[in-house]
Computed example of a mutant assay.
Amino acid sequence: MFVAALLSAATASAQCTGDGVQLYPSPGGIVPTNMRLLLEGVGTARSPVLALVGKPLKLVASDHEVTLKVTKGWESTLGRAVIILKPSEPMQPDKRYTLRLGEVLPNVPILNGQPGAQPSWLSGKGPDTKAPKWVKRPAVSEGFVRRSPQGIARFVKLNLALREESPAFLVVKLSPRRLGISPQQYLLPVQSNTAYLGHEACGGAFALEDGRSYRARIEAFDAAGNLAPSTPPVDFEAPSAKGP
Rank of each mutant, 00 (worst) to 15 (best):
I30V: 15
N226F: 08
E209W: 13
E164Q: 15
L188T: 03
G29Y: 01
A81P: 04
E75I: 10
A238H: 05
G225A: 09
L39S: 03
Y214Q: 05
A61F: 10
E237C: 02
S76W: 02
V53K: 12
S141H: 07
G124L: 14
T11I: 06
G73F: 07
P93G: 13
R178C: 01
R215V: 11
K55A: 06
M1C: 07
P127H: 02
P90H: 08
R163K: 11
Q191K: 08
P232E: 06
A12H: 15
A220W: 13
A224Q: 13
P132W: 11
T77P: 08
A153G: 15
A201R: 09
K72E: 14
D63A: 15
K125C: 01
G28R: 02
V49N: 02
F155M: 00
C16Q: 10
N159Q: 11
I84N: 11
S123P: 03
Y97N: 15
P149M: 11
S175M: 09
V234C: 10
A153D: 14
V172Y: 05
G143Q: 00
G204Q: 04
L38Q: 15
N159L: 11
S47N: 12
L227V: 12
G126C: 10
Y97A: 15
P32V: 13
L38V: 09
S76Q: 08
G29H: 01
V104E: 00
D94N: 15
E219P: 00
